[in-house]
Write a protein that binds this DNA or RNA. Structure first.
Lengths: 195, 195
DNA sequence: GTCTATATTAAGATAGAC
DNA sequence: GTCTATCTTAATATAGAC
């Protein structure tokens, strides 16, 4: 096995950056965040540690990039925007990637410390998620498809909370069916059938 | 500042243990788990670090004891057993104790690693919580108070998930009203009034 | 070819775990 | 006290523009 990268060539910044994020994603997912030495990521990419610091100001910032990239891919799964129909595909993806899901769960809790580099990321993420989902819920309420005795934002918060909470339960018991649970919640939110 | 403990007296094991758990609870809540050196806890209790290791085999085990004790106190808040009516008081308690709530949230995510000392604790906790709450929900279903188109265990899981998830959102945005959100969820689960 | 911005690294300081 | 991981500094190599 000779050198991985072409000799005497420097990668374009954007490509190297992606490569680092991708590699870090894999390693964090399998070894955990704390359990991963940046040296290991650097080796797998085929550069020195210092190169990583050229692209990311620290390990936590690299973590933030990994989380953001996962988020971006999640949005693609959901089709157009963030709506109730996006829940199941994302839950399914998370089920297939337990390592990344754990990484996210741990990060979302630890980044609650304002000193954590991902704090702003999660704060933003939840604010936007609630807002976008609330819009979808609101539209459905106007269309008469969802009960209107609870506000759209409250319902959106509940759905997101259920998503995160079910995921946590699933981490402890892989028999928990996240997608089914979310489906049931959405069913409950639908306008109750006339009788 | 002289010694806190009475000179020349040994505490009874159970009391010292409680004292350590209580002190650790306060310090973990304010300084965070990682940020706390056991030496600090020992100093506040007024014993040497070695004494802590006599009662707890390690920092993580002490954490488990802290979490279990918080859980025990939470059950007292809920009145008789674990039911839907216990949700609001516990949420209120958590709101008053953000440090401990963060501690719990972080621990519940990180202890997902089977190597973590609290792994078994959380696994048990969720299993029992679901079981107990499902019983309460089931009773209400039989009494005709709660919709029966979704199983009791599924509903229990959803409520617990919403609890944890809302708590996480609250950690990032203190305007989130956990108790109100849970109340709304419970309302939604009630049998719709005849019309 | 020279110049400039960017990519990369060597060497080491610092801090924490054991 | 040793070891390991994160991060800094400062110097070198390359690519692309002109």
């Amino acid at each position: 096995m000779s050198t991985t990268k072409p000799r005497g060539q420097y990668a374009k910044g954007a490509e190297r950056r992606e490569q680092i994020v991708q590699t870090a994603t894999d390693v964090f997912a399998t070894e955990g965040f704390e359990g991963t030495a940046l040296k290991r990521v650097a080796e797998l990419v085929g550069v020195k540690e210092a190169t990583l610091f050229h692209y990311f100001s620290g390990k936590q910032e690299l973590l933030t990039a990994v989380l953001a990239e996962r988020d971006r891919r999640g949005k693609e799964l959901g089709g157009a925007g963030v709506g109730l129909e996006a829940l199941a595909p994302v839950a399914e993806r998370n089920r297939r990637e337990p390592g990344l899901t754990t990484l996210y769960a741990v990060a979302s809790a630890t980044a609650n410390d304002p000193g954590h580099a991902s704090h702003g990321y999660f704060q933003d993420r939840y604010a936007k998620l609630v807002e976008e989902l609330a819009q979808d819920v609101g539209r459905r309420q106007e269309a008469g498809a969802i009960r209107t005795d609870v506000g759209a934002e409250s319902l959106a918060r509940l759905v997101i909370a259920a998503f995160d909470g079910l995921q946590l339960q699933w981490l402890y018991d892989k028999n928990v069916d996240m997608a089914a649970g979310l489906r049931e919640l959405v069913d409950v939110l639908l306008v109750p059938p006339a009788r």
